[in-house]
Each structure stands twice: as structure tokens, then as C-alpha cells.
Simulated assay, not measured.
Amino acid sequence: MPDAADSSILNHMVQYSPERLNASFAALADATRRGVLDELARGDASITALAGKFGMTLTGMKKHVGVLELAGLVTTEKVGRVRTCRIGPGRLEEEMEWIARYRRVWDARFEALDGVIDELKREEKARGRRKRK
């Protein structure tokens, strides 16, 4: 359960589109789809080339590309019989901000934990000095 500091950090954040976040994170949850994005970051590729690169059927790769396309991470264009894929317009800014806000919560928790550990070390050190006297 979040404490008061966590709630303060979370309450001062922008509202996010759950549908967009769900689509993006679902697309990125799969290693093959992340690999497809890595490939497309190097340059456009056909679905056939991507399928070959990942050792998949065309049908399987079309499904992966479709998920990426729904999330706005990939666009496709059919010219003749070839469907070419490229990195889409989705820049993941909203997703990065969503992640960043939870990072701020965890950073604050770890800072507080560091303070507790430092205090325990000081107390332990003080007890050790008292025992030697």
C-alpha cells in the first residue's frame, strides 16, 4: 500500500490513457516484438524478411506486426505483393512518463530505507563503543 509520500508523487501526475498504455505494454511484453522493433530501428523490412530473421511463419509474424501496429509502434505499407514495415509514430513518451513516476516512488522508498539503515548502523556502532568501556 502506498504511503503518504508515494501518494503525493502519484497524485501529481498526468492522467494516462489506459487503452494506449495497455496496447503499448502488451506489444512490448513479447521478446519477438521487441526484436522486431530492434530490427526496424536499423531500417525498414518486409514481413517475409522479419519472419525469416526470427524463424517464424508469415502468419505468426503478421500477428506480431499487427500487435505492434495497433500500439502505433509500427506502420506497414503494401506495395504489390510485399508488405513493408517501419517504425511507427508511437514515441513511447506517455509510457516513459508512466514508468518514471513509479521510479520516483521507488527512489523515494529506497532513500528512506537508506536512512533507516544508516540510523541502525549508527546505533550499532554506539552500542559497540558502550560495551568496550
Rank of each mutant, 00 (worst) to 15 (best):
R104F: 12
D30Y: 08
R83D: 14
L92G: 12
A4G: 08
K125S: 13
F25D: 00
I9W: 00
I87W: 01
S46V: 05
D30H: 15
D118A: 15
K62H: 12
A27T: 05
S8T: 13
D107C: 07
E93D: 14
R101H: 12
D114T: 04
R129Q: 10
R91G: 14
K53T: 11
R33G: 02
S24K: 03
K125G: 08
V79L: 15
H12D: 15
H12W: 10
I99C: 07
A26W: 01
G115K: 01
L120A: 07
N22Y: 04
R122K: 14
F110R: 02
E119F: 01
E77L: 13
V14Y: 12
E69H: 09
K125Y: 05
A23F: 01
K78C: 14
L58G: 11
A126D: 11
A126H: 10
K63M: 13
R83T: 15
G128E: 13
G115P: 01
V36W: 00
R132M: 09
T57C: 10
A29P: 02
I47Q: 01
S7M: 13
G80Q: 09
R33W: 01
R103K: 05
M1I: 09
E123C: 02
W98C: 02
A4L: 13
A45L: 10
G55F: 03
C85N: 04
